[in-house]
Structures are given as C-alpha cells and as structure tokens.
C-alpha cells in the first residue's frame, strides 16, 4: 500500500462559543481515503470540531477559532479562502436527512446549479453518477421529478449523500448520518461508507460505538473539548491507552 498523505490536519486548534471554550488545543492529522470516527459523550466537542472542518460554524454568533486547520496543507481559515470554494471541497451530511422540498433531481443538482452550471446534459449526467455512487439510482431512476420528501428516511439520507457527492468534494463530513434511521437503512449507509472510502476522505461523528468500530479506520475520542485519544480503530477498541477512553467505550462512563 502506498503511503497516504495527510488530508486534513488540525494544529493547536482552539474554538470558543463566546466565553465557552469548546475545543481545547486539538492536534490531529487525518489520512486521505480513510474513515475517521469521532466519538465521545454529548457536548464533548466532536460535532463542533466536525463543523469547523468546513466552517459551518461561521454563521454562529460568538464562535471563533484559533489555530490552524489545514486541508491539503492549506489553512482553511486563512483570509483568502472563500467559504463556498472550501465547501465544494469538503461536503457534509447531517444527522437528520434534510432534502430540499423539491424534486429528487433538483436536490442532486442543486450544488451544481448554484455554481452556475445550467446545461441539462451535464446536470443529468452528474445526477445519475452521484445517485449511483450513493446506491440510490436503481430506486429512484423512474421518479427523478417526484418530490424528495416522498422518499423514506433512509433513501432521503442517501439522497443527501448523493447531493453532497454531486459537487465532487474530496472530503465528506458526516454528522451522525444514521442516528435517525432504522437498522436496515443504517446498514445501507454503512455499506455506502465502505464504498465511498475508496474515493473520499470521510470523517464521521457517531454516538454508536459499534458503528465507529464497523466503519472506521481511525477513531478519535473527545471528552470535554479535548482530544483524549486518537488511534487505529482496532487498537482503540481492543486496547485503548487512556483510561477515560476505556471507560467510555466499555460503557462505564462517569
């Protein structure tokens, strides 16, 4: 296997919501084409960290970041970085499926349309390709003009993944992508993550320890805004180095 390079890296990262110190001196480097899982109890900062990776927190008042986040070695909080350009590179899928109240087709090509791409043939091709990648094409190919809200929860979430893939990012952030879904849909999403791993760098926040175990190559454990442990998922789940990690993953927390 060729050596993978650092896709995403945080250096001495601190984040604040007003006076609240949400992330404390985070240092982490994530390899390309790997799945990294963020685990930790609610309010530990894992979602905050995920959302700093595509600057989704920019709109939150009082939020500020110190330190560097490097995407392919480039600081994404630098002044000359345009947020919309960054988000084309770093896609995101949310906890609750959030399709737009439009047709399936319109949902998938939204990202392209706002970039000004209007040519029907390009949009159609992109839509098919990303729906196939999201393992949804066979289910929806005959009803692309139907409302996305008519799909099941699991299908909606895969649609949201397709929508994110359509603008061909290199990183995919997933914020508890299966927590609102039934076990079968969850399994499908997890399958998808294995597939996507070949082409994308994936960062996933999850509350489900088993999910972290099943899908990820690396796991990062956050607690009270600190990165407590970051290691190969195998090592983390069989012999965690830190006692707090051990207590958390064995369910003996607190």
């Amino acid at each position: 296997m060729s050596k993978k390079h650092n896709k995403l890296e945080a250096k001495n990262l601190n984040a604040y919501y007003g006076d609240f110190h949400a992330l404390k001196n985070i240092n982490i480097a994530m390899d390309e084409k790997n799945v990294t899982a963020f685990i930790g109890p609610s309010g530990c900062g894992k979602s905050t960290f995920l959302r700093t990776l595509n600057r989704m927190n920019d709109y939150i008042e009082g939020f500020r970041v110190e330190g560097d986040i490097l995407l392919d070695g480039r600081d994404i909080y630098a002044k000359d970085v345009r947020v919309d350009e960054l988000r084309k590179e770093v896609g995101m899928v949310f906890q609750k499926p959030n399709p737009f109240p439009k047709s399936i087709f319109e949902n998938v090509v939204y990202g392209l349309k706002i970039q000004g791409i209007k040519k029907k043939s390009i949009l159609e091709e992109a839509a098919e390709q990303s729906l196939r990648q999201a393992a949804l094409w066979e289910e929806v190919k005959d009803k692309l003009d139907k409302s996305a809200l008519a799909l099941s929860g699991g299908q909606q979430q895969r649609l949201c993944i397709a929508r994110a893939l359509a603008i061909s990012p290199s990183v995919l952030l997933m914020d508890e992508p299966a927590s609102a879904l039934d076990p079968i849909s969850t399994a499908k999403i997890e399958e998808l993550i294995y597939e996507l791993k070949n082409d994308y760098t994936i960062v996933i926040v999850t509350h489900n320890m088993q999910q972290a175990g099943r899908v990820s190559d690396y796991t990062a454990f956050f607690y009270m805004g600190e990165l407590v442990e970051y290691n190969k998922t195998k090592s983390m789940f069989t012999s965690p180095k830190n006692e707090r990690t051990q207590n958390y993953i064995t369910g003996r927390f607190g």
């Binding site: 088993q210 175990g213 099943r214 195998k234 789940f237 069989t238």
Partner: peptide, 9 residues
C-alpha cells in the same frame, strides 16, 4: 478474532 469481536460485535 479479537478485533472482529471488538469492532463488529
């Protein structure tokens, strides 16, 4: 086997 049990329950 250990890894499998730990990761896949």
């Amino acid at each position: 086997c250990e890894n499998f049990l730990a990761l896949y329950t």
